[in-house]
């Protein structure tokens, strides 16, 4: 009887203290949430300000004190970009660059597949060579690549803009990592059915590799859409400029017109943000899985 009483008192004390702990815990969760929300807001200020300013008329952006929401909502800046500033051309070039970089993605997948699933002479050495290219800083290759393209008469052409960044070691590495998990029996079965090696790759390997293709496809799209350095170096004519080169030109020529600049930036950033929001689960988790192993 005594001990039972004692036990119940103990239990009560325990639930009491655990309730206190739970309350403290919930408190901590709230504080963490509030700190992150504040940090997140600060991080987002440039985006918020960019989008709000893009819809203000030029006069309103020049006002001091600035308005927060556009007093007079206008699409004039965007219309201006496309009607007077050649953004149609830049957009077309950017789309061409993105499409070409998908060819590069395909080549990376092919190489990753061969490194994962074939035994051949020099396989290890060649793969290390591929990995070694990741260590080379862009600044070292920048000038020689320009000279090589010049020698091939590819400066000021779309091919010259696209070729230097077409394949990437990291992408080949990720494809190899993923494709080495595909069971060999599957390939053997298809070979017995008489499928050619290339058809095997197209019809069996690629469909199985959908998860890694999705991640890489999105990253390729983002990289292509954002491509800046090679178009800047290689393109002399405005007719070959991509959106980012065009935007930096806009910054130089219309330095005072911030509404126009913000519209240009919004046009560059928002499509990427939307795509990222839609696929963020794939990107972040794909990154985690493939990057850390």
């Amino acid at each position: 009887m005594e001990t039972m009483k004692l036990n119940s008192v103990k239990a009560k004390a325990q639930t009491n203290s655990s309730a206190k702990a739970r309350r403290a815990n919930r408190m901590q969760q709230w504080v963490t949430g509030i700190i992150l929300a504040l940090g997140g807001f600060i991080i987002s200020i440039p985006f918020i300000w960019m989008i709000l300013s893009a819809f203000k008329p030029e006069m309103e952006v020049m006002q001091i004190p600035p308005t927060f929401l556009p007093k007079e909502f206008t699409l004039e800046n965007f219309v201006n970009l496309f009607e007077n500033m050649n953004f149609t051309v830049y957009l077309r070039n950017t789309i061409v660059v993105v499409l070409c970089s998908f060819i590069g993605l395909f080549l990376n997948a092919m190489a990753g597949y061969a490194f994962a699933k074939y035994q051949f002479k020099g396989r290890e050495k060649l793969f290390y060579l591929v990995l070694a290219t990741m260590m080379i800083p862009g600044q070292v290759t920048m000038i020689p690549v320009y000279l090589i393209l010049n020698q091939l008469h590819l400066t000021n052409t779309m091919a010259g803009i696209v070729l230097p960044g077409l394949v990437g070691a990291f992408s080949i590495f990720l494809f190899r990592q993923f494709m080495s998990t595909i069971p060999d029996e599957l390939l053997e079965a298809a070979r017995l059915d008489g499928a050619s090696e290339f058809r095997l790759f197209l019809q069996i390997i690629l469909p199985i590799s959908k998860p890694i293709l999705a991640v890489q496809g999105i990253l390729t799209f983002i990289a292509g859409w954002n491509s800046f350095l090679w178009p800047l170096i290689i393109a002399n004519d405005e007719s070959l400029y991509t959106l980012s080169v065009g935007l930096s030109l806009l910054k130089g020529q219309y330095g005072g017109n911030f509404a126009l600049q913000m519209a240009g930036s919004t046009f560059m950033v928002v499509p990427i943000v939307i795509i990222f929001m839609l696929f963020q689960k794939h990107i972040i988790e794909g990154y985690t899985i493939s990057g850390m192993k």
Partner: peptide, 29 residues
């Protein structure tokens, strides 16, 4: 959701980002 918010700046175009920050840093406006 916070992962997405904090990750966002790293995928946006460097030129667009520089243009926006130049505006934020502008001494008068």
């Amino acid at each position: 959701a916070f992962r997405v918010i904090f990750y966002m700046p790293s995928i946006t175009n460097v030129v667009a980002v520089a243009v926006v920050w130049s505006y934020l840093y502008n001494p008068q406006l």
